[in-house]
Nucleic acid binder design. Structure first.
Length: 1068
RNA sequence: GGGCCUGUAGCUCAGGCGGUUAGAGCGCAGCUCUGAUAAAGCUGAGGUCGGUGGUUCGAGUCCACCCAGGCCCA
C-alpha cells in the first residue's frame, strides 16, 4: 500500500520531513560517494565568503551548481563536491573592529593581533555553521564534512607554495607604485576590489585652476603663467612638474589681467570664457617642454635640498605626457609623483625623485609644518585659500565626479604611492587570453566582452595588504635585502632550526620567526604584509588538497574543473583569480565551462533589499518551500539575465506544475490503493500493445526524457523545466482526464482488468520517470513521489531517487505517428467543442456524427485515436471529409517562404492575382494543387505565372451559421439532428450526472455501492430503463427501482432535461 | 565618455538561418464542464514587437542612429 496522499499538500512541511529522513539515513553522503571510481566530472565549489548570514540571492548560485552536479551524478559520473569557505579578509576584520569599538589599526596592535585574529576566526566559524544549515535546507549537496577552509594551516601552506613558485619565476616582486589606498584600513586595494559593486560614487570636490608663473620667459611668454587644473588641491603640496601633450596646440591669452598658457581647445571651458580666443602667441606642446616655472609651495624644494639636491635642476619644468587629454582641465596637468599612476611614471621618466609628505593614515607629515597631522582631504579648502592669498588662484569651483570608495568601510580612496607586492600577471597575459579563448562561457558574450576586455586591460596584481586576518605573505628578508620565499613549513623549520609543525601560520605567530639569512647570515624577518583574499579563493584547485605537500594524486585527477558557476560580478573576482593563478603556475586554465548567472531583483526590478520579506530565505522556505524557489530560479529565463523574485512568482510554481503533478499523484495513489495495484505482481501488456492513449503518453514521456537529458547536458535548465511543466500539463489535462474512468470503474471481466492494469502501469511509469527528471530541480518533491510510489511497495528498491540513475529514454517507444495523431485529435476535439458551443448543444447530448477535415498525411494517425476522439466529442461515429466545400470558403495566398525565392519581386503580382479569385475558382484550384499539380495563373499585363502546390497557402474559413469549426488545417462539422434514441441516451447521461451530485452531497465515498430509487414522467423512466446497464455501472448502483409519477417524502428532486425527477440514494 | 546585456500582451517570458495571421502561461470577461484537482474546456478583450531611418519583393529578426533600464570600465 502507498501512503495516502493529502489533497491539500503542505510543501514546506513535506520538505522538512524529507530532509529529516535524508539526514537520518545519510542519503546525501551516500549520493556523494555512490559513483566513486566512475568517469569523473569535475566541479569546483567557489568558496562563499563566510561573513554574513546567507540571503535569498545566495540561493541562485547554489541551485545552479546543484542541478548540474546532481544530474551528472545520476548520469553515472563521479562528481567530487568538496565544500569550501573563504575565511580571511577585511570584512571579518571590520566586523570584529565594530564589536570591539575599534577604529584604527594601531588600536588593533594595542589589543593584540593574536586576540584579534582569534575573534576573526570565531566569527567566521559561526557563519560557516549557519551557511551549512542553509545549504542543507535547499538541498545543495556538498561534502561539508571535508570542506576546505582558506584559514586552515594546510590551505595556507599550499598558498605559500604557490607564492614561492611565483617568486622563483621572478613574478612576485615588490614595487613602489601608485595604488588605490584606503587611509582608514591603511591598506592598498587591488583592481578587482575596485571592481566591486558601489565602489564608484558621485562626490563633490573642489575644481581649482592655478597659475604657475614662468621663469625666464621671453616674447609672448614673458610674464605669462601656465594654467593647470586639479580636483585635489592637497596634492599641490607635493607638486613636482607640469605635463603637456607634445601634440596639442597651446596659446597665450589675456585672462582677467593675467597672461595664461592653455590648450587652445580648452580655452572656453577651462577659463569659463564665451568668446573666441585671441592668442598672443601659439605653440605646440613640444615647444614648451623644459620651460621653468614657479611652484606653488616650497615643501618639495626643502625636501630636495636635503635629500636629492641634484634633482632640483630637473624639477618644476614642463614635461611630456601622452595621458594629457582634452576632456578636462586646461591641457596642462599638475604632477605630484606620489598621488597618481600617470604622475609617477612621468616623474620617474623625467628622473625626478618622488616626494611624499603624507603618512599611512592620510595625514601630512612633519615636512609640511603648516599642515602636520591634518588629513589631506580636510586641507583642501585651506590650501585653496593660501593659493588665493598668494595670487595664483585663477578659478575655484565645485565639481561632481565619481570617486572610488573602500568597499568595506566606505572611505574615499586616495591614489597613493607605496611599496607593495605584486604578481606580474602582465607577463603571462597573452597566455591568459589564449586560455580564455578556450573557455565555454555561458552566456558566450562574456568571453570576448566583459571578461575579455578585463583581461586585455590586465595590470599586475596588487597582492599585499597591510592587515592582520589573512594569509601571511611568506617572504623573509634580511637587512641586505636578500629575499627568501618560503614554500612550506618544513622549509621554514629547516631555516629556523626548530620544528615548526603545528604552529598557527597566521600572524602574529609567523611574525616572530626569524632565521639567519642563507646569503649573508644577517637576521631575516618576515615582511609583515598579508595577501589579498581573492588569491586564497583562486588557489582552491590545489590548496583545497594541501597540494603539493599532500594529496598530489587528488589534485592531479581533479584539475581542471569541467564546470564552475558563479554570479556575473565574479568576472573580476574568482573567475579571474582562478585563471591568473592556474595559468601562472600550471600554464593551464582551471575551468572549462562557466555559467555566469545574473542577479536577483525584487518584484519591481530593483536590487533586492534586505528589508523585503522575500529577501530572507528562511521566510521563503517556510511559506513556499525550497523546491518552489529552486524550480523558479531554474525556469525563470536565461540564467545570465537578472531575475525578479516575488511571492506571486513562487505561488505560480506551486499552483502550476507542482500542484498539478501532486493531484495526478494523489489520484494514482487513491485508486491504486483501492485496487491493490502493485507493479511487481500485476501483469501488463508490452508498451507497444497498449491502447493508443497509453502509447501516446509513453511516447511523449520518452521524448521528454531525451529532451531533458539533452538540455541538461547543454546547461539549459530553462528548456528542461519548461518541457517538464508542459508534460505535467499534458499528463493531467489530457491523459488523466481521458482515462479517469479506467481507474475508478470496477473491472467486470478479464479484458477490463487487463485495461485497468495497462492504465495503472502507464501512469505509474510516467510518475516514477517524472520524479527522476524532476529530481535535480525539485529534489524534495521528487523523493516524496519516488519513495511513496516505489519503496513503499518494494523495500528492496534503492531508498532514495537521488541514488538512482537518471531516466533513460527508449527510442523504440517513441512513436511519432501516435504523437501526431493525438496532437491532431486534440486540435479536432477543441474544434468540436467550439462547434458544439456555437450550435448550443451540450457535450452530454450524444450526437450521431462528426465529419472531420484532416490533411491527407495525418488521416491514418487520427484514425488510430478515432475512438477516443469520438468519446471526447460524444458522437456515435466519425467520418472524414474530402473537401467540405459547401461549408467553407477557400482563399489562396502566396506561401512567401517558398514563393519569394521562386518569383522574386513578382510575388506581388502573384498575391494580387490570387486575391482576385472567386471562392469557387479558388476551391477548384485548391483541389488541383492538393493533388500535386501545377496551375497557370493569368496576370494582368504580364506573363502567366506557373504555380506549384508549394507556392500557395490554402486557407479555408467556415461559412457563418453552421456547426462547423475550422482552424487550418483541421475542421469539424457536427450532425445536429437529435433522434429519439440519442435523446434518450442524453437523458440517461444527464440523469447520471445529477445523481452523482446527489451521491456526493450525501457524503458517500467514491467506492460506496448504492441502492437507487427513481420516480418521474413516463418518457424519462423509459429512457432510464433502456440505459439501465450504463446507469448502474456509472453510479455503482446494486439495485434500481422505477416509478412513474412523483417521488416520496424526503427524496431528492432533480431536473433532467425539462423533466422533474425524484431520486432516493441509500448506501447498499 | 566607452564596453557588454536587456526592452515583445496588464504580469512572467518563448520567438534557429529574414517569410506576411507574433505565441505560451498567469491574470481579466462570458459561457460550459466537473466522480482527482486550489482544476479543466470553449470563446473573447488585450501588441505601433522601445523609437527613427535604412537594406529587402518581405524586418520582431539584419544594419545605423537614438531613447530607457541594468551591469562593468574610465
Amino acid at each position: 500500500m502507498h501512503r495516502p496522499v493529502d489533497p491539500r499538500p503542505d510543501f514546506p512541511a513535506m520538505e522538512s520531513a524529507v530532509l529529516e529522513w535524508w539526514n537520518e539515513q545519510g542519503i546525501p553522503r551516500r549520493a556523494l560517494t555512490l559513483r566513486e571510481g566512475s568517469e569523473p566530472w569535475i566541479f569546483y565549489e567557489g568558496p562563499p565568503y563566510a561573513n554574513a548570514p546567507p540571503g535569498v540571492h545566495n540561493v541562485l548560485p547554489r541551485v545552479i551548481k546543484d542541478v548540474y552536479t546532481r544530474f551528472q551524478t545520476m548520469k553515472g559520473r563521479f562528481v567530487p563536491r568538496k565544500a569550501g569557505w573563504d575565511c580571511h579578509g577585511l570584512p571579518a576584520e571590520v566586523e570584529v573592529e565594530k564589536k570591539l569599538g575599534i577604529k584604527h589599526k594601531r588600536e588593533i596592535l594595542d589589543y593584540g593581533i593574536e586576540r584579534f585574529n582569534n575573534l576573526c576566526r570565531a566569527a567566521v566559524s559561526e557563519y560557516i555553521t549557519n551557511y551549512v544549515r542553509f545549504s542543507d535546507r535547499i538541498a545543495f549537496w556538498l561534502d561539508y564534512e571535508n570542506a576546505y577552509e582558506t584559514m586552515s594551516n594546510e590551505y595556507i601552506e599550499s598558498v605559500w607554495w604557490s607564492l614561492a613558485q611565483f617568486h622563483a619565476k621572478g613574478l612576485l616582486f615588490e614595487a613602489d607604485r601608485v595604488a588605490a589606498y584606503c587611509p582608514r584600513c591603511e591598506t592598498p586595494l587591488s583592481d578587482h576590489e575596485l571592481g566591486q559593486e558601489d565602489v564608484y560614487r558621485e562626490v563633490s570636490d573642489p575644481g581649482v585652476t592655478l597659475a604657475f608663473p614662468i621663469i625666464g620667459g621671453t616674447g609672448a611668454l614673458e610674464g605669462a603663467s601656465f594654467a593647470a587644473w586639479t580636483t585635489t588641491p592637497w596634492t599641490l603640496v607635493a607638486h613636482l612638474a607640469l605635463a603637456v601633450n607634445p601634440d596639442f596646440t597651446y596659446i597665450v591669452v589675456e585672462h582677467e589681467g593675467r597672461k595664461l598658457v592653455v590648450a587652445r581647445d580648452r580655452f572656453k571651458e577651462a577659463l569659463g570664457r564665451e568668446d573666441e580666443p585671441t592668442p598672443l602667441a601659439t605653440f605646440t606642446g613640444r615647444d614648451l617642454l623644459g620651460l621653468r616655472y614657479q611652484p606653488p609651495f616650497p615643501y618639495a624644494r626643502r625636501y630636495f635640498d636635503r635629500a636629492a639636491p641634484e634633482a632640483i635642476e630637473r624639477a618644476w619644468r614642463v614635461i611630456a605626457g601622452d595621458f594629457v587629454n582634452i576632456e578636462e582641465g586646461t591641457g596642462i596637468v599638475h604632477m605630484a609623483g606620489a598621488f597618481g599612476a600617470d604622475d609617477l611614471n612621468a616623474i620617474r621618466a623625467a628622473d625626478i625623485p618622488v616626494y611624499n609628505p603624507v603618512d599611512q593614515s592620510g595625514n601630512f607629515d612633519a615636512s609640511v609644518p603648516e599642515f602636520e597631522g591634518v588629513f589631506v582631504k580636510a586641507a583642501d579648502d585651506q590650501i585653496t585659500e593660501l593659493l588665493s592669498l598668494a595670487g595664483v588662484l585663477v578659478r575655484s569651483e565645485r565639481i561632481m565626479h565619481r570617486v572610488a570608495h573602500c568597499w568595506r568601510c566606505d572611505t574615499a580612496l586616495l591614489n597613493y604611492a607605496l611599496v607593495a607586492w605584486y604578481i606580474r600577471t602582465t607577463e603571462f597575459k597573452d597566455r591568459m587570453l589564449e586560455a580564455n579563448a578556450g573557455v565555454n562561457w555561458i552566456p558566450e558574450h562574456i568571453r570576448d566582452g566583459r571578461y575579455g576586455d578585463w583581461l586585455r586591460n590586465n595590470v599586475d596584481w596588487s597582492l599585499s595588504r597591510f592587515r592582520f586576518w589573512g594569509t601571511p605573505l611568506p617572504i623573509w628578508r634580511c637587512p641586505n635585502n636578500h629575499e627568501k620565499a618560503i614554500g612550506s613549513v618544513a622549509e621554514l623549520s629547516e631555516l629556523a632550526g626548530r620544528d615548526l609543525s603545528g604552529i598557527d601560520l597566521h600572524r602574529p605567530h609567523v611574525d616572530d620567526i626569524t632565521f639567519a639569512c642563507p646569503d649573508c647570515g644577517e637576521t631575516s624577518k618576515r615582511v609583515p604584509d598579508v595577501i589579498d583574499v581573492w588569491y586564497d579563493a583562486g588557489a582552491m584547485p590545489f590548496a583545497q588538497w594541501g597540494y603539493p605537500h599532500k594529496n598530489v594524486a587528488q589534485f592531479e585527477a581533479q584539475f581542471p574543473a569541467q564546470f564552475i558557476a558563479e554570479a556575473l560580478d565574479q568576472t573580476r573576482g574568482w573567475f579571474y583569480s582562478l585563471m591568473a593563478e592556474s595559468v601562472g603556475l600550471f600554464d593551464r586554465n582551471a575551468y572549462e565551462t562557466v555559467i555566469c548567472h545574473g542577479l536577483i531583483l525584487d518584484e519591481d526590478g530593483k536590487k533586492m533589499s534586505k528589508h523585503k520579506a522575500i529577501s530572507d530565505p528562511w521566510t521563503v522556505f517556510s511559506n513556499f518551500g525550497s523546491d518552489a524557489l529552486r524550480f523558479y530560479f531554474l525556469s525563470a529565463g536565461d540564467p545570465a539575465d537578472s531575475r525578479r523574485l516575488s511571492e506571486e512568482a513562487l505561488r505560480q510554481v506551486i499552483r502550476g506544475p507542482f500542484l498539478t503533478l501532486w493531484n495526478v499523484y494523489r489520484l494514482y495513489v487513491l485508486y491504486a490503493n483501492i485496487d491493490g495495484f502493485d507493479p511487481d505482481t500485476w501483469r501488463v501488456a508490452d508498451p507497444r500493445m497498449r491502447p493508443p492513449i497509453d502509447r501516446w503518453l509513453l511516447s511523449e514521456l520518452n521524448v521528454l526524457i531525451f529532451e531533458v537529458d539533452e538540455a541538461l547536458e547543454d546547461h539549459d535548465s530553462l528548456t528542461a523545466t519548461r518541457r517538464i511543466a508542459e508534460f505535467i500539463d499534458d499528463l493531467s489535462n489530457w491523459y488523466v482526464r481521458r482515462c479517469r474512468e479506467r481507474f475508478w470503474k470496477a473491472a467486470a471481466n478479464d479484458e477490463e482488468k487487463a485495461d485497468k492494469s495497462n492504465a495503472y502501469w502507464t501512469l505509474w511509469t510516467a510518475l516514477v520517470k517524472l520524479a527522476g527528471l524532476l529530481s535535480p530541480f525539485a529534489p524534495f518533491l521528487a523523493d516524496e513521489l519516488y519513495r511513496n510510489l516505489v519503496t513503499e511497495l518494494n523495500p528492496k528498491a534503492l531508498p532514495s531517487i537521488h541514488l538512482t540513475d537518471f531516466p533513460v529514454g527508449d527510442p523504440e517507444i517513441v512513436d511519432p505517428r501516435i504523437s501526431a495523431g493525438m496532437a491532431s485529435a486534440r486540435e479536432l476535439a477543441s474544434l468540436g467543442h467550439s462547434a458544439r458551443r456555437s450550435a448550443g448543444v451540450k457535450v452530454r447530448q450524444a450526437l450521431r456524427q462528426a465529419v472531420l477535415l484532416v490533411p491527407w498525411d495525418l488521416r491514418d494517425a487520427v484514425e488510430e485515436v478515432a475512438e477516443l476522439l469520438a468519446d471526447e466529442l460524444n458522437v456515435k461515429e466519425l467520418a472524414f471529409a474530402e473537401e467540405a466545400s459547401e461549408l467553407v470558403r477557400t482563399t489562396l495566398r502566396p506561401n512567401f517562404a517558398a514563393a519569394g525565392p521562386a518569383f522574386g519581386p513578382r510575388v506581388r503580382e502573384l498575391q494580387t492575382a490570387l486575391g482576385a479569385l472567386g471562392t469557387d475558382e479558388a476551391g477548384a484550384m485548391a483541389t488541383t494543387l492538393e493533388q500535386g499539380m501545377e496551375i497557370e495563373l493569368d496576370v494582368e499585363g504580364g506573363e502567366p505565372l506557373v504555380v506549384g502546390p508549394e507556392h500557395v497557402d490554402i486557407r479555408r474559413e467556415p461559412a457563418e451559421g453552421t456547426a462547423f469549426a475550422y482552424e487550418a488545417p483541421f475542421g469539424v462539422s457536427l450532425d445536429l439532428e437529435i433522434t429519439p434514441e440519442l435523446r434518450r441516451e442524453g437523458i440517461a447521461r444527464e440523469f447520471v450526472h445529477q445523481v452523482q451530485n446527489a451521491r456526493r452531497d450525501a457524503g458517500l465515498d467514491v467506492t460506496d455501492r448504492i441502492s437507487l430509487a427513481v420516480a418521474g414522467p413516463a418518457q424519462t423512466i423509459e429512457a432510464l430503463e433502456e440505459h439501465e446497464y450504463y446507469i448502474t455501472d456509472e453510479l455503482l448502483a446494486e439495485s434500481i427501482t422505477y416509478a412513474v409519477g412523483g417521488g416520496l417524502e424526503g427524496w431528492t428532486s432533480v431536473k433532467v432535461e425539462d423533466a422533474d425527477v425524484s431520486v432516493h440514494v441509500t448506501k447498499a
